[in-house]
Deep mutational scan, measured.
Amino acid sequence: SKDTIRINGIDIDVKDLHEEWKRLVEEALKRGDEELAIELLERALKE
Rank of each mutant, 00 (worst) to 15 (best):
S1C: 06
S1F: 11
S1I: 13
S1A: 11
S1M: 12
K2I: 13
K2S: 14
D3H: 09
D3Y: 01
D3K: 05
D3L: 03
D3A: 06
D3P: 05
T4S: 08
T4P: 05
T4D: 03
T4M: 09
T4R: 05
I5F: 08
I5K: 02
I5P: 02
I5V: 11
I5D: 01
I5Q: 02
R6E: 04
R6C: 04
R6I: 08
R6D: 02
R6A: 06
I7N: 01
I7R: 01
I7T: 01
I7W: 04
N8E: 04
N8A: 09
N8S: 06
N8L: 07
N8T: 03
N8F: 08
N8G: 12
N8V: 03
G9I: 03
G9W: 04
G9Y: 03
G9K: 03
G9T: 02
I10M: 12
I10V: 13
I10E: 09
I10S: 05
D11F: 06
D11N: 06
D11P: 05
D11R: 04
D11T: 08
D11A: 08
D11I: 08
I12M: 08
I12R: 07
I12P: 00
I12G: 01
I12L: 06
I12Y: 15
I12E: 01
I12S: 01
V14W: 11
V14R: 02
V14S: 03
V14H: 02
V14F: 08
V14K: 02
K15R: 13
K15A: 12
K15H: 11
K15S: 15
D16I: 08
D16Q: 11
D16W: 15
D16R: 08
L17A: 02
L17Y: 04
L17Q: 01
L17R: 01
H18F: 07
H18M: 09
H18T: 14
E19Q: 12
E19T: 09
E19G: 10
E19I: 12
E20A: 14
E20R: 15
E20M: 15
E20I: 14
W21P: 02
W21R: 02
W21M: 08
W21T: 13
W21D: 06
K22A: 05
K22C: 03
K22N: 02
K22L: 15
K22I: 15
K22H: 04
K22D: 01
K22Q: 05
R23Y: 07
R23V: 07
R23W: 06
R23E: 05
L24M: 11
L24P: 02
L24H: 04
L24I: 06
V25P: 00
V25W: 04
V25N: 00
V25C: 02
V25T: 01
V25E: 00
V25H: 00
E26N: 14
E26V: 15
E27G: 05
E27Q: 12
E27Y: 06
E27P: 00
E27K: 04
E27W: 09
E27R: 06
E27M: 15
A28E: 00
A28Y: 06
A28N: 00
A28C: 04
A28D: 00
A28L: 07
A28V: 03
A28W: 04
L29I: 10
L29M: 08
L29T: 02
L29D: 00
L29H: 01
K30D: 10
K30I: 12
K30E: 13
R31Y: 08
G32C: 04
G32Y: 03
G32L: 04
G32M: 04
G32A: 03
G32F: 04
D33I: 03
D33L: 10
D33V: 02
D33A: 05
D33Q: 10
E34T: 14
E34H: 13
E35N: 14
E35H: 12
E35F: 13
E35M: 13
E35Y: 11
E35W: 12
E35L: 14
L36G: 11
L36K: 10
L36N: 05
L36S: 07
L36W: 08
A37C: 02
A37M: 03
A37F: 02
A37I: 04
A37W: 02
I38G: 07
I38D: 02
I38Q: 12
I38Y: 13
I38A: 11
I38S: 10
I38V: 10
I38W: 15
E39S: 14
E39C: 15
L40D: 00
L40E: 00
L40C: 02
L40Q: 01
L40R: 02
L40F: 06
L40S: 01
L41Y: 09
L41G: 01
L41M: 06
E42A: 12
E42Y: 15
E42I: 12
E42V: 10
E42N: 14
R43Y: 08
R43H: 07
A44F: 13
A44R: 01
A44E: 01
A44W: 13
A44L: 07
L45C: 08
L45M: 11
L45V: 08
L45W: 12
L45D: 04
K46W: 09
K46L: 14
E47Y: 06
E47P: 06
E47H: 09
E47S: 09
